[in-house]
Amino acid sequence: MKGTVTVDDALCKGCALCIPVCPKGLLRVASERFNARGVHPAELDDPAELCTGCEMCAIACPEAAITVYRAVKA
């Protein structure tokens, strides 16, 4: 695994701006659940661990809802 992201449900407004910017198409709208704001939040869908931690999604997010992690050599 090179990287991963978490979406803060409390901050996400479900605007979906992060979704088209991911070069690997790893983000989705969780249409089966609502957050406390009453919107479908974005979430990572990356079973094959393809996320590189490139930060593109976080740069696009107006709510600073996305935290990006990258694997670093120990």
Binding site: K13, E55, A71
Partner: peptide, 21 residues
Amino acid sequence: LTPVYEYPKSLTHVPTHYCPG
């Protein structure tokens, strides 16, 4: 895994009233 992008310290945690997007 180490954070490379985190919520900025110079923003409060007050929810903003801006429209989605």
